[in-house]
């Protein structure tokens, strides 16, 4: 089987590894780098459980090839350090089984970075790409809004 070398920049580290061309970023992260925070939920872009950040964009890593991510800046949930959205997920009980949580957190985190002023419509547009089967989404709404509101309060001072 043919394998090629790629260089990935993940969570601030540079890693070189051999991959098959057909490998998805999700597979490489999980199976080659042990970064199992991103989860497989559907492997076809429907659920968002596999969401990571690539160059600051929220990307479903199950539908990106690893070779496409070569030399890009990748952040997985393991790369977040006490992000406000993580704290709010804890405080608002925004997870139950926790399986969708890393994907939601990465998606929320990118939303917060990109659209600090996000209104209801933007939040909905952004978050409807992920699925949670345990919560009724209310707690996730509370968590994301808590971060947005507190950021807005900070920046208005």
């Amino acid at each position: 089987m043919v394998k090629n070398e790629v260089t990935l920049h993940v969570n601030g580290e540079t890693r070189s590894l051999y991959i098959r061309n057909a490998e998805t970023l999700l597979y490489t992260l999980r199976e080659k780098l042990g970064l199992t925070g991103a989860k497989p939920g559907c492997l076809n872009g429907d659920c968002g459980a596999c969401t990571v950040e690539v160059n600051g964009a929220a990307i479903k890593s199950c539908i990106m090839l690893t070779i496409e991510a070569a030399n890009q800046q990748i952040t997985t949930v393991e790369g977040l350090q006490d992000a406000p959205i993580q704290t709010q997920f804890v405080e608002k009980f925004a997870f139950q089984c926790g399986y969708c949580t890393p994907g939601f957190i990465m998606n929320c985190n990118t939303l917060i970075e990109k659209y600090p002023e996000a209104n209801e419509t933007v939040i909905k547009k952004w978050l409807e790409s992920n699925i949670c089967r345990c919560t009724g989404y209310k707690e996730i709404e509370d968590a994301v809004k808590a971060v947005l509101t507190s950021n807005q309060a900070d920046s208005s001072v």
Partner: peptide, 20 residues
């Protein structure tokens, strides 16, 4: 409203599931 014991592992992606 005691914070859940599994909270930190679940929001940091370190909670391990079977396929992990």
């Amino acid at each position: 409203n005691i914070i859940r014991k599994d909270a930190v592992e679940k929001v940091t992606g370190t909670a391990k599931y079977t396929a992990d």
